[in-house]
Write a protein that binds this DNA or RNA. Sequence first.
DNA 1: GAGTGGTCTAGACCACATG
DNA 2: ATGTGGTCTAGACCACTCC
Lengths: 243, 243
Amino acid sequence: MPKAVFQTIYHDLKQKIENGTYPYQSFLPSEAELTQAYGCSRSSVRRALSVLATDGYVQSQQGKGVRVIRNPALIDASGYNGLETFNELAERCGFTPATHVLVFEEVEADEALADVTGFAAGSKLTHILRSRSADGTVISTDESYYLSDEVPGLSPADVENSVYAYLEGTLGMKIGTSKRTITVDVATEADKRIMDLDGFNAVGIMRSHTFDADGVMIEYTESRQRPGFFSYHETAIRPSALA
Amino acid sequence: MPKAVFQTIYHDLKQKIENGTYPYQSFLPSEAELTQAYGCSRSSVRRALSVLATDGYVQSQQGKGVRVIRNPALIDASGYNGLETFNELAERCGFTPATHVLVFEEVEADEALADVTGFAAGSKLTHILRSRSADGTVISTDESYYLSDEVPGLSPADVENSVYAYLEGTLGMKIGTSKRTITVDVATEADKRIMDLDGFNAVGIMRSHTFDADGVMIEYTESRQRPGFFSYHETAIRPSALA
DNA sequence: GAGTGGTCTAGACCACATG
DNA sequence: ATGTGGTCTAGACCACTCC
């Protein structure tokens, strides 16, 4: 439940856009009217609008108004950015997901690993390799390194489900920023061995560096995915505000 | 040249992070100190910090301060989100880029095309298919549809370079929001015919819907890329502010 | 000129971290 | 208790669009 004023406004407007109260290409009430309607300051209204713009729901036009640009006819307009989680994917495609832990070990970062992961050389890391399957077909692998000191008590059983569920739930850790790079590259021998590539010789790769709320980098993950499943969505706003 | 106060602060702080004045993992001066230093209101300082956080440069911690989380040792920390443009890619990999226009025609959107592109059925569209090559090797194709009425005078010659240069430069159009989806999928016969796939049987695909500053959708593009070149970067912030 | 969004200020109160 | 960031307000002025 949102407590902040701007969050309440954000959710209300978002819902009204989704249910068609404010349809695609229409204009929202003016900021002055919204300020009146919600009985708050203009700043709070503007903050809510700013988040909606980041979501790709609306776009402001100086002198004219705030226009709805979410087209319900387009599937891509899901409203959220980022990679589909494995479970969302399973839901969408209607298959039964499963995870297998192939590697779970402690390692110390040498120079090469430090270069790749961004952890300092000599860091104690927990190395995890998992495969994920859909109805028995292995469609992706996740290779992760966690800063061991930050994930005390992590066990293979926790990893079988979601590491994040353990970090955020059991450990009470708060996640901050995550930086991701997506590429498509040649399938390695290991990919062919572990995944059911169905003849494909290339894979989608997402590499991510994750920081906790204290700004400490706690995770590096390389997720490799069989073509045909991988899906990533993003909304970009022209950097008029940052130029 | 930035005119707004928050933009000036943003650029100054950004530069000081990049040149090591505020190194990785250090804390910026407090908001109160920055307010003093820049002789402005706290709001302007906070707005600059907010953009830096979106860029993945800093992360705030209530009660503690604002921490620098940009690690210059990681290539991925380039500071900007989004897909590398073809020319940036050429620069990074050191090859000579070239573009060939394969199709340039006017079409009317039927139901099927409307479904894919998001344009209304019956719209007059300019259909463009281009191949892009590196030192003679064709590594990607871009298939675009533009709302013809919005791109008057567009010619194959303009398209040979950058369509955006024509839109923003010659036409003075302002681009607004862009929504993108990235997938990896099977290479089609057309892919194999047009691109030098070097034996690869999968391609990276980016589909994008672009809106102009008036909120009108003007472009749909499907960019298909040979594995090994495609690169996309993004910074995600935990949605504490939007939950 | 009237209405819209874009920027900025000055000040207030709250939640959290640290000593 | 002090300092930090998080939220909010009330009001001001500017730039742009449209009549």
